[in-house]
């Protein structure tokens, strides 16, 4: 039985490897790159991967050869020659890896400087604020604040400043750039560039609490034109809706009973001035909600408003908002529907 296993094991393992490497690239694949930073990182990875493969195969083959060639025959009493070493051989296998490593270190060091040096004149500067458990994007020079969907113009160098006033997070867009940690009281930064128009996945990569797994975001790479249009739309203020359902949602939102405005900002409104939660001025124009984990539609939105803790355990809103803390102030089903309609009207 063991012999059968032994025979098939290497085949099985190499088969597994081939299957694994031939798999399809998912939305957060680091192999399917769409920006210069991720590209450089993937190239470097392939370099060391193949170099490592050579060493791996050579040594594993040596192990298998030894296994076959030098195994004890039954009842063998052979005493092998008692060699204690071989100085020449030992010097060789100390020096050769050193030379090998010296050679591969050249492209690494150059990549460290390319990736680690931010552009002197970035086209756009975005301040990213990590929260528990969502991302806030602040375009400082353009006077725009949004959440969870980052828009950038294609082919431009973007400087990202990373801030947190709570715990650690890490900002990561696998197809565009590797991650950089967000650390309170330490202004970290990174630069990114998206080379192809499209929507890309991002995720928080440093453990940040109960719902760390649900702290995601999207990056939308727009054409220059679309990006400018998006910015000017984001700068516009929200209006009081005309539709009666949406209007009643607006009233609940602004009421002191619900108190939504204490944490959420809606530009143009006098009551919604909060800065704790996401800015909702153009919430309806976002494709996803709750930090990139759900599609932005009526059903999901109602579920979220009804009981956010079911969707994202440990979120601050369900732990602090009166409508979730005080049973006397709970939202009725019609209030939930009205609020959802109002929020989606905020295009």
């Amino acid at each position: 039985m063991f012999d059968t296993i032994k025979k098939f094991l290497p085949i099985l393992l190499s088969l597994l490897f081939v299957i694994a490497c031939g798999g399809f690239d998912g939305p957060q694949s680091t192999f399917d790159t769409h920006g210069p930073v991720a590209k450089e990182q993937a190239d470097l990875f392939y370099l060391i991967l193949w170099a490592g493969m050579v060493v791996l195969v050579a040594v594993e083959l040596a192990i298998i050869y030894i296994y076959i060639k030098f195994r004890r025959k039954k009842n063998s009493t052979r005493i092998p020659s008692q060699t204690h070493g071989n100085t020449k051989l030992e010097i060789m296998w100390t020096i050769l890896p050193a030379i090998f490593l010296a050679i591969v270190s050249v492209p690494v060091l150059s990549a460290i400087w390319t990736i680690g040096t931010p552009p002197k004149n970035p086209d756009v500067v975005v301040n990213v604020h990590g929260h528990q458990y969502w991302f806030e994007f602040e375009y400082q020079d353009l006077d725009v604040v949004t959440a969870n969907e980052l828009h950038i113009p294609v082919g431009k160098k973007i400087l990202i400043n990373l801030y947190s006033n709570n715990v650690l997070h890490s900002f990561w867009i696998p197809k565009i750039a590797g991650k950089t940690d967000i650390i309170p009281n330490q202004g970290n930064y990174m630069w990114i560039q998206g080379d192809d128009v499209g929507m890309y996945y991002g995720q928080c990569a440093e453990f940040c609490g109960e719902s760390h797994a649900l702290m995601r975001f999207r990056v939308v790479v727009d054409t220059d034109e679309d990006f400018r249009a998006w910015i000017s739309h984001q700068k516009s203020e929200a209006f009081v809706p005309n539709d009666p359902l949406e209007k009643s949602g607006y009233d609940i939102f602004m009421s002191s009973k619900a108190g939504c405005g204490g944490c959420h900002m809606i530009n143009g409104s006098k009551k919604a001035k909060g800065k704790i939660g996401p800015n909702l001025t153009h919430f309806g124009s976002r494709q996803h909600m709750a930090a990139g984990i759900l599609e932005n539609n009526q059903v999901n939105l109602r579920n979220w408003i009804r009981n956010p803790d079911m969707i994202k355990p440990g979120n601050i809103m369900s732990g602090q908002a009166a409508v979730y803390m005080d049973p006397n102030k709970s939202l009725t089903e019609s209030e939930v529907i009205a609020l959802a309609s109002y929020l989606q009207s905020l295009k």
Binding site: Q41, L56, A111, I115, G178, A205, F207
Partner: peptide, 19 residues
């Protein structure tokens, strides 16, 4: 050990860290 050398490459480790 080999995957260890792989993420000693800090530039490409940005993609592997915490994964």
């Amino acid at each position: 050990g080999i995957s260890g050398v792989m993420h000693s490459f800090s530039a490409s480790d940005y993609q592997q860290q915490d994964t």
